[in-house]
Simulated scan of single mutants.
Amino acid sequence: MPRPFTTFNFKVLIEAEPGKVLCDAEFSDCDGLEVNMEPKTIREGGNNGRQIHLAGPVSYGQLSLKRGMTSDFALWRWFEQVQRNRTLRASGRILMLASDRSRADVRFDLTGCLPVKLKAPTLSAKDGEIAIEEMQIAYETLHLAESGA
């Protein structure tokens, strides 16, 4: 019997080049995996009771990663590299893991990733917050790969 996909078990991978992992991180929240299509609506002459919808341009969301844990400063370095080389892009993978974290059941592949916001947490000696509060990434395409694909 198939198990439901859970949203609390996921991992984020970002590669600057194929095979060269820039970031292998854990975040508490991942939002913005979305694709929208704006239909083109046309009306047929003489047919006032019907409209025809054609596939229109596609737009993508902006990935928002919150409260992240990484072992290094690779995400900060990537942001700084993009400031110097504005054509630098990366690819990303969001893996939805099985409940035992042994495999990825679903994978979202992102291309043309560009960091657009990086926010550090409020620095406070009384809080035990993590070093990356929020990162936002614009992406050019989004593809879904099911398990076994």
Rank of each mutant, 00 (worst) to 15 (best):
A104S: 14
A104D: 06
A104K: 05
A104I: 04
D105R: 03
D105N: 07
V106F: 10
V106S: 01
R107T: 15
F108T: 01
F108L: 10
D109A: 10
D109E: 15
D109Y: 11
D109G: 05
L110S: 05
L110G: 05
L110I: 08
L110Y: 05
T111H: 06
T111C: 09
G112W: 03
G112S: 10
C113E: 02
C113L: 06
L114N: 06
P115L: 07
P115N: 08
P115V: 08
V116C: 14
V116N: 11
K117H: 08
K117Q: 14
K117E: 15
L118D: 03
L118K: 03
L118T: 06
L118Q: 03
L118V: 10
K119P: 02
K119R: 14
A120S: 13
A120V: 14
A120G: 09
A120I: 10
A120C: 08
A120Q: 13
A120D: 09
P121S: 10
P121D: 09
P121Y: 09
P121F: 11
P121V: 12
P121A: 11
P121K: 12
P121L: 12
T122K: 13
T122Y: 06
T122L: 14
T122M: 13
L123C: 08
L123S: 13
S124K: 13
S124D: 15
A125Y: 10
A125R: 12
A125T: 13
A125F: 08
A125W: 07
K126E: 15
K126W: 05
D127R: 10
G128K: 12
G128R: 09
G128L: 09
G128W: 07
E129H: 14
E129S: 15
I130A: 12
I130P: 00
I130C: 08
I130G: 04
A131F: 09
A131N: 13
I132D: 01
I132E: 01
I132G: 01
E133N: 12
E134K: 13
E134P: 00
E134V: 02
E134Q: 15
E134D: 07
M135K: 01
Q136H: 08
I137M: 03
I137G: 00
I137L: 07
I137R: 00
A138R: 08
A138S: 13
Y139T: 01
Y139R: 02
Y139S: 04
Y139V: 02
E140C: 06
E140D: 15
E140T: 11
E140I: 01
T141G: 04
T141N: 14
T141K: 09
T141F: 03
T141E: 12
L142V: 03
L142H: 01
L142C: 00
L142G: 00
L142E: 00
L142D: 03
